[in-house]
Design a binder for these strands. Structure first.
Lengths: 132, 132
DNA sequence: TTAATAATGTTATATTATTACATAGTGTTA
DNA sequence: TAACACTATGTAATAATATAACATTATTAA
């Protein structure tokens, strides 16, 4: 069952749910939503989430403990992620900006550590909320 | 008691502990460490942490659910934070780089949202771990 | 077809964080 | 100094997030 699209049954169910969602989903929200599909326990959800994060199909928004589908074909296996988060409506958007991505991927700091990966979260008030 | 340095008793105890530490501390690690000083329950710790984060004395490392003292006089009230995290030894360093900070503070993306704040976490293997 | 690997199912438990409510300390100002 | 608003504290209970451990089944590759 794995080969066709390289997602397993549980992974596919959970990916589909996250992918359809317009907002980040939390692990237990996912759990409650997929119980009718036979996924009954936290480890089943967390295992699928771990795998999906690992393969870059989804990202974890660390400041929210929530997950979004990857919308950015450029972020290979989640090496370089950036998000904009509205502090009012909680909307999260993945930022896809080549210049930003390149700037950060090339960044090296004084202590000489070579970075393999980064995650950037911007916070503010989105256009829509500003109007209200 | 507040006025002298504008940290309350619990805030000062918890800040001192984090500030002395060479590594990020987790809330319950802090709780266990300060029980002899009369701080006995999670809300006492979380309240102090919230306040310290709010005032920029400490930062939360979101990917680790842990807290470090601010080493950077430039990051006013935690508006612009960047960290380097070693995936091997788990060492966390606050990055203080004016150019990076300015680049990100000035960043605006297409959708027109104005950012007030950001948090950036870089991951890699530090110099010391590379040698081993 | 066997062995290795990946995925699943299940129970229990660990870790992280908040709610709710009662009490006490501090700063302001009338 | 009395009254007030505000901040901080103490405490019990519980909510939310995440993992450990172990048994079983499915998939792939040799």
């Amino acid at each position: 069952m794995y080969k066709e699209n390289n997602l397993s049954k549980n992974q596919q169910i959970i990916f589909d749910l996250i992918n359809k969602s317009s907002e980040p989903l939390k692990a237990y929200t996912i759990l409650f939503s997929v119980q009718k599909k036979g996924i009954k326990a936290p480890p089943q959800v967390y295992r699928a989430l771990d795998k999906l994060v690992e393969t870059g199909k989804i990202h974890k928004i660390e400041s929210k403990n929530a997950f979004v589908a990857c919308r950015n074909s450029d972020c290979e296996i989640s090496k370089a992620t950036a998000f904009s988060i509205c502090e009012s409506c909680e909307t999260v958007d993945e930022i896809s900006d080549m210049k930003l991505s390149k700037y950060l991927s090339d960044f090296n700091h004084k202590k000489g550590m070579k970075f393999k990966r980064f995650n950037l979260e911007f916070f503010g008030i989105c256009k829509k909320c500003k109007k209200d």
